[in-house]
């Protein structure tokens, strides 16, 4: 290649070997068990709190991986090392069961999500009128093909009859976390984000979308095949159904599961 060699090889090699050796010991593993959880991006704040609770209650460690539901599901089908799957919809956990990646009968709805039209500018969002007036250049939503919060946003726009008018101004985040980042950095004036992402944010303006404008965002969890014999994974799902987890979710703006 035309790039000139920038380093002499031998010292670099020596440094490389040193680094590999120095890091080869695994960091102290916890005494308790470990749960690897694939978690939909909207639920990241809640999942961290719940993992903290779980550690205090049981001594088990939780390793959380966040992404859009579609992205995580693809990873699960390709043998990703997850024990439990906390999706943002019902379809993917259901599919995981029928396609043999999850334990039948382990599926349940752990929360229902709410979407919010949010802007960091005070006074910009004022109910559905904001969407009808369309006085903005960019509207951020999560990718509707992979993120249920994105498809709920599209349903809302259609229900209000403004989808075709606003279509050309939509920018898509890869998941709800990136969508929030687009709005929070001001690159998009308004966006559909998750209510849970606004916990602790009192500035800006928002409109909590009424639930009759889109299908209920029922978020299902499921025990994956890999976690079937992991006691910690079952205990985690147990806690997720319990009153403590429900309190965390309520605080963050989630509706109850079933």
């Amino acid at each position: 290649m035309p790039l000139r060699p920038m380093f002499r090889l031998r010292p670099v090699l020596a440094a490389g070997i040193f680094i590999v050796l120095a890091l080869s010991g695994r960091p102290g593993t916890a005494l308790g068990g470990e749960v690897r959880a694939a978690v939909a991006a909207n639920f990241s704040a809640a999942a961290k709190d719940i993992a903290g609770l779980f550690a205090k209650e049981t001594g088990h460690k939780t390793v959380l991986s966040f992404g859009s539901t579609g992205q995580l599901y693809t990873q699960v089908t390709q043998g990703a090392p997850f024990d439990v799957f906390l999706a943002a919809d019902r379809a993917r956990p259901q599919k995981a069961v029928t396609e043999g990646f999850a334990v039948p009968d382990s599926r349940f709805t752990y929360a229902t999500g709410r979407i919010v039209v949010y802007s960091r500018d005070a006074g910009r969002v004022d109910g559905e009128a904001t969407l009808r007036a369309g006085k903005f250049t960019r509207l951020a939503i999560a990718n509707p093909a992979t993120a249920p919060y994105g498809s709920a946003a599209v349903e809302t726009l259609r229900a209000l009859g403004v989808y075709d008018a606003l279509r050309g101004r939509i920018v898509q985040g890869n998941n709800i976390a990136q969508t929030f980042q687009f709005v929070d950095s001001g690159n998009a004036e308004v966006g559909f984000v998750a209510l849970s992402q606004l916990a602790g944010i009192s500035t800006g303006s928002k409109w909590v979308v009424p639930q009759n404008l889109h299908a209920v965002i029922a978020q299902d969890a499921v025990l994956l095949k890999r976690g079937a014999r992991n006691e910690a994974a079952r205990a985690f799902l147990q806690l997720l159904r319990g009153p403590q987890a429900r309190a965390v979710m309520e605080k963050l703006g989630y509706g109850p599961g079933s």
Binding site: N187, A188, E189
Partner: peptide, 13 residues
């Protein structure tokens, strides 16, 4: 700022 010259808000997207 540049986008503002053309009536925009951001060069992202």
């Amino acid at each position: 700022w540049v986008a503002g010259l053309f009536g925009g808000r951001s060069l992202a997207f």
